[in-house]
């Protein structure tokens, strides 16, 4: 897998975790797991920023443009469908040989693409 894509994936998963902490699992995390929500959010933000700094410049700029607008920066592609916009990505892109070997974006919604499964 492309290393930049791997960084993007990690960033996306952390952003998801952050979003869930403020909008979903807040009570569960605080009550069952004793998570200090504000501290956790701060720590996730720092980690995301640290990882974003490790992105190559061009990719980082694209990342920032998407990240400012939408919660999702990387969309999974499952069975040829981009789950950011539910449009089929072209078959050449979905070909198994070069899946996840470089950073690609969806031409419809702009998300970075990660082929799953």
């Amino acid at each position: 897998m492309d290393q930049q894509l791997e960084l993007l994936l990690e960033i996306q998963d952390l952003r998801m975790q952050r979003r869930e902490l403020t909008d979903g699992s807040t009570d569960l995390e605080a009550e069952v797991f004793d998570v200090k929500i504000e501290d956790a959010i701060r720590s996730l933000d720092e980690k995301v920023e640290e990882l974003a700094e490790r992105l190559a410049r061009g990719i980082r700029e694209r990342y920032r443009r998407i990240a400012d607008k939408a919660p999702r920066v990387v969309a999974p592609v499952i069975n040829g469908i981009c789950y950011g916009c539910f449009v089929a990505v072209s078959t050449a892109r979905a070909s198994e040989a070069d899946r996840n070997l470089r950073v690609e974006s969806c031409e419809y919604c702009g998300c970075f693409l990660y082929h799953v499964g």
């Binding site: 990690e10 952390l14 975790q17 995390e29 004793d34 200090k36 956790a40």
Partner: peptide, 14 residues
């Protein structure tokens, strides 16, 4: 990747 994410979650609190 999954292992790393689980570790990151543990870092927020066991």
């Amino acid at each position: 990747i999954l292992y790393k994410m689980l570790k990151r979650r543990e870092n927020l609190g066991s």
